[in-house]
């Protein structure tokens, strides 16, 4: 019995000690978008090896939650796949928080079809009509007489959000649209279905699917980074004011400028904003 009590006391001591040490460490709280989440995760991973004393937590709860967390002071960096809404900005300023946006990467969504499909380009409006179910056959857009199999990502994915906003103008898709739950699966469905149309992140383009020109512009790193390609959007990190130079927050928000940062962004299927 005595031994148990002694053990218990030692354990308690250890726990308290680690708590005290931890309190002296620097912490970095990151919260927000599920789209930017993988970038933040990989940045955090890189930071952990560079600054072993730093404690980073990355939460992926959605852009809106990220903004709310920054406004409430619950996080140092809010990752967002869209700019702050008027309402959020106002709420922030009312609470004495001044959001500053850092564009860390560009996200481009490529519209893909089966390689045998003769169609090479579509307008945004035509793509929207296809997804709304107004156009159901490839011959209506200059292709062969073949029913269109429309494939979308599930509506909890960031890719879906981008597409929904930039192509669909937030209008609802038709009832014939099929949903798949990952980029590889969307790729696989388009690769194996002759009449399919789908959309994937630019990292998933290969010879098995054919990317379409949208409004006459071919998706590429160049056209996405320069903003010519219409289905592209910037990805943000928001901080309260511009972070103090040299602080951890500053290092984190400018990590995308470093070579490692750019490699991470490309590895995650996004486009670095640095046009090198």
């Amino acid at each position: 019995m005595k031994r148990i009590i002694v053990c218990g006391l030692i354990m308690l001591g250890l726990v308290l000690a680690t708590k005290l040490i931890a309190a002296e460490n620097q912490t970095l709280q990151i919260d927000g978008s599920t789209t930017v989440g993988p970038i933040a995760d990989a940045f955090a991973e890189a930071f952990k090896s560079n600054y072993p004393d730093l404690e980073i937590t990355v939460k992926k709860t959605g852009s809106g939650d990220g903004a709310a967390a920054l406004i409430d002071g619950r996080c140092d960096v809010a990752t967002m796949s869209r700019f702050m809404k008027d309402k959020e900005f106002k709420a922030a300023v009312d609470k004495g928080v001044f959001p500053v946006a850092h564009v860390v990467a560009m996200d481009g969504v490529c519209i893909v079809v089966h390689p045998s499909n003769p169609v090479t380009q579509l307008s945004t409006a035509a793509i929207r009509d296809i997804y709304k179910g107004n156009i159901t056959n490839w011959k209506e857009v200059g292709g062969s007489d073949l029913p269109i199999v429309v494939i979308s990502r599930d509506n909890s994915s960031g890719t879906y959000e981008t597409f929904h906003e930039l192509v669909m103008n937030k209008e609802e898709m038709g009832s014939k649209v099929e949903y798949v739950n990952s980029n590889p699966q969307a790729h696989a469905r388009v690769k194996t279905t002759i009449g399919a149309i789908g959309y994937v992140g630019i990292g998933f383009l290969d010879a098995n699917v054919k990317a379409l020109k949208v409004d006459g512009i071919m998706p590429s790193r160049q056209t996405i980074a320069t903003g010519q390609y219409p289905v592209a959007r910037p990805l943000f990190m928001f901080t309260n004011g511009y972070p103090k130079l040299g602080s951890m927050t500053y290092k984190f928000c400018t990590f995308y400028l470093t070579e490692t940062g750019q490699e991470i962004i490309e590895a995650k299927g996004f486009i670095p904003v640095t046009n090198y």
Partner: peptide, 8 residues
């Protein structure tokens, strides 16, 4: 399963 992920 599909919707739960991102639903606030």
């Amino acid at each position: 399963a599909g919707d739960m992920g991102e639903t606030p």
